[in-house]
Design a protein around this nucleic acid. Structure first.
Length: 120
DNA sequence: TTTCTAACA
DNA sequence: TGTTAGAA
């Protein structure tokens, strides 16, 4: 019937939902974040968003990587901070062990507190 | 066909 | 930031 069924349903479910599992190629992420692939490669070069790599050296982004990407876009587009600033902020968030799923909430609150939000 | 790096506009 | 050449 089903070939290659070497894992239990339970294990497969865990794999599917693991937010750190590298799954998406650069094209998909660029589309989701509405940025050029070039931009994602620059983030990678600058150690701002560093996906893992496949055996063939292709970038593979996880759900958490995409959350980090949304956060980066929010900071660049809505707050107007540059990459040097983003680099520092990400470093601080990491130190404080803030999870990627909370990045947007965290920085949005900070933006309101400081009245530095553009638009919205 | 897609992604890679590097370089140029 | 966007585009492209050439390789893999």
């Amino acid at each position: 019937m089903e070939k290659n069924k070497t894992k239990t349903i339970h294990e497969q479910k865990i794999n599917t939902l693991d937010p750190e599992k590298p799954m998406f190629p650069i094209s998909v992420v660029a589309d989701i974040l509405k940025v050029h692939q070039r931009t994602l490669r620059i983030y990678d070069d600058e150690s701002i968003l560093t996906p893992s790599r496949s055996a063939k050296n292709r970038r593979l982004y996880s759900f958490n990587d995409i959350e980090r990407g949304k956060f980066i876009q929010f900071m660049t587009r809505d707050i107007g901070i540059n990459l040097a600033g983003i680099k520092i902020i990400i470093h601080l968030l990491k130190q404080q062990k803030i999870q990627p799923s909370q990045y947007l909430e965290y920085i949005n609150q900070a933006g309101h507190d400081l009245n530095i939000l553009k638009g919205n």
